[in-house]
Design a protein around this nucleic acid. Sequence first.
DNA 1: AGGTAAACGAGACGGTACGTCGCGTCTTTCA
DNA 2: TGAAAGACGCGACGTACCGTCTCGTTTACCT
Lengths: 193, 193, 193, 193
Amino acid sequence: MSKAKSASLTPKTLGRPKSRRSHEAILTAARDILDELGSTRLTIDGVAKRAGVGKPTIYRSWANAQELGMAALAGPLEGIRAPTQMVDLVRDVIVRLNTKRGRQMALLLASAEPDGELFKAFANQVILKGRQAGLEILTRQRDDGLIHKDVDLPLVLDMIFGAIMIRLLLRHEPLSEGDAAKVVDLAMSGIKK
Amino acid sequence: MSKAKSASLTPKTLGRPKSRRSHEAILTAARDILDELGSTRLTIDGVAKRAGVGKPTIYRSWANAQELGMAALAGPLEGIRAPTQMVDLVRDVIVRLNTKRGRQMALLLASAEPDGELFKAFANQVILKGRQAGLEILTRQRDDGLIHKDVDLPLVLDMIFGAIMIRLLLRHEPLSEGDAAKVVDLAMSGIKK
Amino acid sequence: MSKAKSASLTPKTLGRPKSRRSHEAILTAARDILDELGSTRLTIDGVAKRAGVGKPTIYRSWANAQELGMAALAGPLEGIRAPTQMVDLVRDVIVRLNTKRGRQMALLLASAEPDGELFKAFANQVILKGRQAGLEILTRQRDDGLIHKDVDLPLVLDMIFGAIMIRLLLRHEPLSEGDAAKVVDLAMSGIKK
Amino acid sequence: MSKAKSASLTPKTLGRPKSRRSHEAILTAARDILDELGSTRLTIDGVAKRAGVGKPTIYRSWANAQELGMAALAGPLEGIRAPTQMVDLVRDVIVRLNTKRGRQMALLLASAEPDGELFKAFANQVILKGRQAGLEILTRQRDDGLIHKDVDLPLVLDMIFGAIMIRLLLRHEPLSEGDAAKVVDLAMSGIKK
DNA sequence: AGGTAAACGAGACGGTACGTCGCGTCTTTCA
DNA sequence: TGAAAGACGCGACGTACCGTCTCGTTTACCT
């Protein structure tokens, strides 16, 4: 079971409500530390000191440093809608990941404990959500007869999103918006009827 | 330059040589811990105790737990030769990564500090070495006129190896030997003349 | 200024107060180790383990093993009041130093870093405090005309307390309560009018 | 039993002889470290590095850092002969201890393990040898009828040498050559017939 | 208006692991 | 065969964070 907490600011109203000021100071401090020192240096002690906040105040909302880091970076990848064209989706994902926060998220993902709940949840948010949207597009296209029937669609999607991920994580080659069209073209040319 | 230590057992012969017994006891202990407890629980203290060795003896050869872990797992990915057929290369990579050690390496890679020397060195060993071999194959085929001239070969390779990597790291889908042919077929069908 | 920590349990009440239980467990463990193993074997690791306490808890109150040892032994030498008779003072000092703790303090003093704050503070507590009380007695007696005017009183005191100290540290001869009268007689016979 | 070794430079001539160069480099390095860093920082590792010498070469001649330190400082207190006058003896001791090396010896004594062989040997060399010489003088004087018969001579000597020692170790007052006459006068005035 | 309940800052707690220093011993090769 | 070099097992060092726990204080809501 996940220990993840809701981080909601108003559970039921009884007693003193959580301080919005502190909440945001914590998230800001976490982002600053990620910016300046990297994900390995994101510690609860450090965030508490920087935010001028007690540690329990942090633990009241997040279970550990990774969850806090994830929350601090959340946002840029929210609201990926499924466009009707594959290329639009891929371009959208690349653009979102190519922001500063997007890159930090990828790094945080890479440094998260790979067996943990968080890793999976985060991976889902960062990569798999887009992949799932892509799967729906391709499935529709196959149903419409635009794509060969016996193609392993999940594998195609892993090639597309794997290409994005490998460049994001290993950074041996730059990842640019223009790659969206190229990678989709390459993938489609092999599977189009 | 890297601060990484060589861990070589006989640098030039001066003074007492490093003990082969200790060296191997350390690596064995590290592998055992990785097996039983996972990469998060790989600590220098733990390895020292298990190997019956002093901590300084470990630090004399490796700078930290990740480097030690990497060294402990090294081997299965060595010696990837460049076959003439792309599918053979990809199958080779998948087979090697699909061993227990291969998966442990991927996990270790994922938990390494993403900006560090180690991450890059390891990424290079795990993924990029295969990718480079593939690049040579495809370049030769293009020179032989078997592939369209204006194809972005690095991108093709990132699609192939990205597909492997994404399945290895995120584990949303299994990675099997049979995927080698499929992924190469998909990639080639789009770029073959 | 000294870097020494105060080890006071209630500085001003902010945050969780120091645990009296832990504090006393630490001091007791330190005393036990000094008793059983001697000052050389007084280590922070050992005290922490024996007291069932984390090392940082010890370092929060004392800067190193010597300071802890000093604190553990403090007490028997406190409260030396200045009697009106020199012999009473000297006997008091000898009696206090001749306890088990008193001897341990002398040993600890001898093993402290001789240039450090601690050495001086401890020396002051162990020896010089008594010497100072004696100086007041002798000064009063001189003012009363009982002692020759031109006597080097500090030197007289160093002879008296030096005799105590040399026996305590070098232990070539025993130090007994009866020596108080003898040493004072010897000193006074040379300076009385 | 003491592990102290002879430190002789020419045992019997068999195989390669001990290097006089190394021997002196070690002692010089030890003295330099005592000068610059103090007795607590006198380590075998440090001396070996500074002297450009292997550690075993040091251990071949001295059992540990304290013995080495003692050897490095030895000399100034050697050759205390027993003069016929007490004041000459005391002045001699003070002069010898008031050199730089003399003070270092006192500090080394103070930081030595108080139960060890070394402490006793060193104490003997630094303080007790002089005290013993004094005991002979006073005994002779008593035999000659110059001193009261029932005086506790060892105590008198501890007062004299204790005064020297307390000033040397605690350094609350300076110790000067002129104190020799004063301290002897004080002591003698109480015991002379 | 008063009581009460929760969140607040501060910071100490028992732990685990870190990476380093120094010990005194050992095992090499070189001279 | 002694010296240099340096690795060895060991034990302790002092520090960083962990996640939890007490404090006294503050800020709401709910009588």
